[in-house]
């Protein structure tokens, strides 16, 4: 195919630093997207032990709703804000009308697998609704601060990535504050550690579940809005983003938003490096091999709690 990496490097000695940086930026671009989606998985998992397969749809809704409102003449900031509110409301509704009735049925709640299938059903439903209401075309939101890339040592960085990274940092700091300082956050942590005990000390577990869906839907929508200028948005983009976000959350260790961030960035960079230095045709294989290797060595993910099994 092409010349081997070694030969190329000899020829383009100085270019190789820029090349490496460019691969790194590409990895960070993609990784930041995975990370932001992954955080949503982690939040709901923390509160309910449920993997919400509709998380990718929240991301899609954020981008698509913003696009729809923009085309209706709203300014970008208002469209984005409304999209986040709408998506959060859909997240709350998903919990209220689909997850909660199953999880709190009289005579024993549904198993985790049943709840997963409900979220799969919800993702098909939301995607179907978006297909009918918002159409099947792909759309691109305008970049927040222009398309002119930033030049760093000869490598180019999409300024939109800075928005994504900024949101990621804010989300991490915000969540850390939320879990450590607020009553709701502490109650959420307590529920994830031991649900029964949490109920016994008077925590309203239903409320916690509801809040976790609202919060992760809002975060998902934000992710969808910020990344739409990079990835474009379409009614079915949630499948792919959901899958990669799930990988990020697992890689980092479920239930840890910070782990999801690390997992997402790691995954994105691994993909870019594999595409750059090994083979772009097999880059996804490399990414999944890394995930498998990590899981085999650290079965709880990179930053997962070493959970002890209840007997």
């Amino acid at each position: 195919m092409t010349k081997s990496a070694a030969v190329r490097h000899a020829e383009l000695g100085t270019a190789s630093v820029a090349e490496f940086l460019q691969f790194l930026f590409s990895g960070i671009t993609v990784g930041a997207i995975y990370a932001l989606v992954g955080v949503g998985f982690a939040i709901i998992y923390s509160a309910s032990n449920v993997i919400n397969f509709a998380q990718g749809e929240f991301v899609m809704l954020g981008g698509m709703a913003t696009m729809f409102l923009l085309s209706g003449g709203e300014p970008l900031w208002l469209a984005a804000l409304l999209a986040i509110v709408i998506t959060a409301a859909i997240g709350l509704a998903l919990n209220k009308f689909a997850v909660e009735p199953a999880a709190h049925r009289r005579g024993g709640g549904a198993s985790v697998v049943t709840l997963i299938i409900i979220t799969i059903g919800a993702s098909i439903f939301i995607r179907g609704a978006a297909e009918v209401l918002l159409g099947k075309d792909s759309h691109r939101l305008p970049a927040f601060s222009g398309d002119q890339p930033i030049d760093i040592f000869g490598a180019k960085l999409d300024p939109q990535v800075l928005w994504v990274l900024g949101a990621l940092a804010l989300a991490v700091v915000g969540l850390r504050w939320f879990f450590a300082r607020t009553r709701l956050g502490k109650a959420m942590l307590a529920t994830s550690c031991n649900r029964l005990a949490a109920e016994l000390v008077g925590i309203d577990v239903r409320m916690i579940l509801l809040a976790s869906f609202g919060l992760s839907a809002a975060l998902g929508a934000l992710a969808g809005i910020l990344t739409a200028p990079i990835t474009l948005t379409r009614y079915d983009i949630g499948i792919m983003l959901g899958l990669k976000g799930f990988c990020a959350a697992i890689l980092g260790g479920l239930g840890s938003p910070f782990g999801a961030v690390a997992g997402g960035l790691l995954l994105g960079i691994a993909e870019a490096m594999a595409a750059g230095y090994l083979s772009s045709a097999y880059k996804d294989v490399v990414a999944f091999v890394i995930i498998l290797a990590v899981l085999f060595l650290a079965p709880g993910g990179l930053f997962g709690a070493k959970a002890t099994e209840r007997v």
């Binding site: 993609v30 990079i230 750059g276």
Partner: peptide, 13 residues
């Protein structure tokens, strides 16, 4: 969602 890696390789070939 990002093709800069592939394009960079092409650019440097």
């Amino acid at each position: 969602t990002d093709m800069t890696t592939q394009l960079t390789k092409i650019k440097n070939t």
